[in-house]
Design a protein around this nucleic acid. Sequence first.
DNA 1: AGCCTTTGACCAGCG
DNA 2: TCGCTGGTCAAAGGC
Length: 566
Amino acid sequence: MDSSDSRSSREATGELLSKRPSLIVPVKTPAEALQKDLDLTPSPMTILSSILAEQCTELKTETFSQMLAGALSPPIPAPSFTQKEAPSPSRADDDTPSSLPSLASSTTPLPLALSSLSPSSSSPLSSPPLISSTLEEKPPSLPPQAPGLPVPPAAMPGLKIAASGSGRSNIARFKTMMPSRLPIPRSPCLTIPPGLSPTTLLDSPVLLSTGQAEPSPTTGTFPLPPISGPASSATSDSKIADEDCNSTFAFKPITKTSRNPPSPLSKMGSSQLQSQGISSSTAASATNVSQVLPQSASASFWEAHKVTKPPAMAVPMPAEGESEVSKKEDMAVQYGAVVAQPLVIERPSEDGYNWRKYGQKQVKGSEFPRSYYKCTHPNCSVKKKVERSHDGQVTEIVYKGEHDHPKPQSVRRPSMGNAHAQSLSGREGLSMGAQRNDNLQRLNFSSGTTQTSEPSLGSVSDVEGDGEGSKAEDGDDDEPDSKRRKEAAGDALPNIPLRTIREPRVVVQTTSEIDILDDGYRWRKYGQKVVKGNPHPRNGMGLPEFGLNYHISCEGSANSYCAVQA
DNA sequence: AGCCTTTGACCAGCG
DNA sequence: TCGCTGGTCAAAGGC
Ligand SMILES: [Zn+2]
């Protein structure tokens, strides 16, 4: 329902793209405009802000986001908004164990500016969501620097640290105050036609379009660098992370079809990164995005890295905001999570892993529905909760567990993904894909005919794809796949057929119950549907013990004919 | 044909 | 015990 809504809205946005207005800006490269007052990697937002600031001298102090917000929101007399109203770090300390270093609420202009815009996941302006990572089965007590544990803020110089409590408070504020209601004066320099979202506006040719923009935490196309290996804990040093990110990320015009080969960093996923206790904050820091570092509140079975939407606007926090905040923390505790550290990243779920949504629910106290995802990797029980606004922007992500596998090497759905992703899967991902693909190859002994049909790319996609290719392009990291498929289908290139050696399929006939097959294994039914031309419904099952690499198709006839595919 | 999302139902924990 | 809530399951349909 929500997805359809967001989908429709997205589609509507797409329609608007053709008639998006263009901004008249001085002939000046963003870099030029930026060099003037920025020494950090600018975001399109920042660039535009700087550009507009020059044109609108009277609003020089106003960020573009504020302009946008003003343009979108009705004139509000005597706005009292000030960023100084942001909660003080000391207050946040109250919400966190005293033994932990307090996280300073971020005052980075960009996140604040971003938060003033209407949420849009596909927008480069979208605010970083809240991410939490809850790692399972962690020893009750781990050294602060142990892998997977938050890094003490002290170890990350240059990083803006915000108290988790503060962050939450801001989150609550964000959630309780829609941008349109923010007391931001309407900017005389920029007006947005009704029905046109800032996202669309910023996607105009004047700016770096999302397609042209270099993948970045800001654009949300920047894959978060994971840290591989326990030794990666050393990278918890923000210096290293910053350097890496800085060297990796830069706003550069790129063609939509061109895709930079994933750098070592870009191949790393935020989730993995988070599991290392470093979190995507490293990436965020590189892009001048506010961030909150993980802090281990206490010895816990769980470890949570929570990236939350940055303090949207420094507006007085509604009374209910507090309760909501505390509730969220309670939730984190319930998850066994060490309460999180709001990280400001654009697309936290762009972690390179494949997820299967297994539930969605409207959580009380949360303005947006919460989706439940499970890692599709065999035997991997990592889950995540994603709260997404109605227009698709991720507002909170909570990771639970730790991946026991590297990031997938191929995209999940090459057939639906872009051609580049497919070509990537054909090369990089082929090793992995072929592995699984071979498993999919089979001779149908029952029919005595060899299956000649090429393994569909979709089947290959069944392999845990790294999703780097498609994800880097996805406007919305956490968008439902259906949505992703639709979007990707547009620029998909012809499928490259994969030919692999076929292996015989083992066919087993059994009369036992589906759940208690006589093969000695336990099967989990994951679907049932009527196959065309067959009067009996076919059950799809996988072998959990083998990561569902073994599949069984049973047709519920009296004889319960089942075909086991290995 | 397989895997995905959707979504209502179910379950468990908690006050 | 009951109701509330969050989390999960699983049928159904879609891609
Ligand atoms: Zn996993």
